[in-house]
Amino acid sequence: MTRRFTLIGATALALLPMGAFAQDKELVLYCSVDEEWCRAQSEAFVRETGINVLMTRKSSGETFAQIKAEEGQPRGDVWWGGTGDPHLQAAQEGLTEEYRSAMLSELQPWAVAQAETSGYKTVGIYAGALGFGYNSTMVTENPPACWNDLLDARFADDIQVANPNSSGTSYTMLATMVQLMGEDEAFAYLAKLHANINQYTKSGSAPIRAAATGESAVGIVFMHDAVTQATTGAPIVTVAPCEGTGYEVGSMSLIKGGPNPEAAKIWYDWALSASAQEIGATAKSFQVPSNGSAATPPEAPKLADIKLIDYDFAKYGSSEVRAALLARWDAEIGALPK
């Protein structure tokens, strides 16, 4: 009996100092970029400010659902990263806080436009174009260059894309197709593409990881995610589709009623600074930063070289359009036999 208590005491003592590293101030961060970047960014913030960061990485759709579920009593302070559409929707539904950072003047016009669209409830932190990547050891001849090439029967069961219900990446693709082709044509295209899709993943960047290891030949993702794989040595070739493509403005929002509003604003201002925005490249994330004086990593796909559509963020970020498109996707694409 005595020994057992000794043991329990010893365990408690061993665990206590581990809790001691927690600083007085803290910040609950919902992070929707790549895990590695989330880690690097939180670590840099802890080093700089001494504020402890409690970080959860979830895809943007999931984070939006979580913030909505916690609406009664929010547990998070800042939602950092992830495609802009769910951020805009959160702003529209009043889940996030209006905040005009002093840093706004340093930002690129597209980042400020994101803030204006939402009534300053969100702001752009990076941009990236949609595209796809293929595994060059598996696709050796006649490489795909356009969206239409992906319908080819030789890619049967060999293309991966995320599920638009959970992934902002995939919702951007859905909205891009609708804007590029018109709604009915877009769904006809996606239905044809369905024959070549082997799996709709939950996370937006998972398809390119599958392509990198050869579990799939093609992954439809944001181009910077494909570049990330290529820089780690995977045989991935990044493609900007010839028909034109959409893009995301990765965003950041303050969660309304979060437990640590002061720390949240410190993060918000810091995350818009040039030095903080250069951390992404060190964590192998090659988006174009929104701070004008932050260096764009040389590996980042040049937005100027890509045929970009005039993406209507206000319309496709609104709750009604989003819900309608997703419902149609569930009924017409998600329910198809595999």
Binding site: G61, E62, A65, Q66, N163, N165, K202, L326
Partner: peptide, 9 residues
Amino acid sequence: FFAVVGAQY
């Protein structure tokens, strides 16, 4: 799981 943590909640 997806009904709760997915975007549809």
